[in-house]
């Protein structure tokens, strides 16, 4: 009897941990989707998350309003993405090199600013968190109560953004243009649409989404900024994007799965029942990466947009 209760409590708790850990992954993956569907590779998600996380904490620290922090995170992510867009879209630079540069820059910049603003090397001062949304009536229900009773509002915003992204990508003219820009930019150009503008918007969106993901990590999940605090989540988001086949629903499912693995890890480190697994935590962490390699190796078809990675040069008109 006691064991059953424990399992129920644990299941609810694991569900909650899944939501909590998958939110940043899904958000960043959705952002990456907008960029890559327009045909611009964005491996800089990690950097944009990092800068979003930092700006969110800094803005909250100065204004004491976490919602302004969220705005700052989104804007700073989009700004960094703007640099990526200028290099890749306007100057047709190498997208992977630029993305690597974005990651390096964000790592250096946030660590530097950490020292400038707070005068510390590791972790910033604690700031106000975004308060959780507490739903009183369902708190007593066994599994759902633990899972949904008290979640960050950004988790719900993530759900909304998944649906919105799906709608925008498949049901609006803009979404069709995004798809066309990644599949056949020449045709889009022939139809009289400015390919460069669509691509720039895609990259900016990816920055905004990643910035939001970073802000979630720093002022909704935690309440401070730590040096390089994203610890590779941008890359896992990239993995979720590929595993999810560059679609919103796929990103959501893959992100949730990887988030579940993350939550499981979390459970293992703090729940004594799982203590025997502690030694193998690293292997659980490896799982998303291995799965992506397996998926790409052909167990499951994953088809990237056709024109991905190649800058679009308008042909000279006669």
């Amino acid at each position: 009897m006691q064991e059953a209760e424990l399992i129920i409590a644990l299941a609810g708790w694991l569900l909650k941990a899944t939501f909590m850990m998958s939110t940043p992954l899904i958000l960043a993956a959705l952002g990456g989707m907008f960029s890559e569907r327009t045909g611009i590779v964005n491996i800089g998600l990690e950097g944009m998350m990092l800068i979003g996380a930092f700006s969110a904490v800094a803005a909250t620290y100065f204004t004491n309003n976490p919602w302004l922090g969220v705005v700052a995170g989104v804007v700073s992510g989009a700004l960094l993405a703007g640099a990526h867009a200028i290099v890749c879209v306007k100057y047709k630079g190498n997208q992977i090199v630029s993305g690597a540069g974005v990651i390096l820059f964000a790592g250096g910049f946030t660590t530097l600013m950490l020292e400038v603003v707070w005068g510390v090397k590791g972790v910033s001062d604690s700031v106000r968190k975004i308060p959780n949304v507490i739903i009183e009536p369902i708190r007593e229900i066994p599994i759902l109560g633990v899972a949904f009773g008290s979640l960050s509002p950004l988790v719900y915003i993530m759900f909304i953004l998944v649906i919105l992204s799906w709608y925008v990508l498949y049901k609006t003219p803009f979404g069709l243009r995004v798809q066309a820009s990644g599949e056949d930019p020449a045709a889009l150009d022939a139809a009289g649409v400015n390919v460069e503008r669509i691509r720039a918007i895609g990259v900016l969106l990816s920055g905004a989404f990643s910035g939001l993901a970073g802000a979630y990590l720093s002022i909704a999940f935690a309440s401070e900024f730590g040096k390089l605090m994203t610890v590779g989540r941008g890359f896992i988001a990239l993995a979720a994007l590929i595993f999810g086949n560059w679609t919103p629903v796929g990103c959501f499912l893959a992100g949730t799965f990887f988030g579940f693995l993350d939550g499981l890890q979390f459970a293992i480190t703090i729940q004594p029942e799982f203590g025997f697994l502690l030694e193998y935590v690293n292997f659980i962490k490896m799982l998303p990466y291995v799965l992506v390699i397996v998926a790409l190796a052909g167990i499951r078809r994953s088809v990237p947009p056709k024109a991905i990675g190649s800058p679009y040069e308008k042909e000279a008109r006669a």
Partner: peptide, 13 residues
């Protein structure tokens, strides 16, 4: 690290 990142971004284009 910052200089390194900037160098890469500029070389990219």
């Amino acid at each position: 690290g910052l200089i390194q990142g900037l160098v890469v971004v500029f070389v990219a284009a």
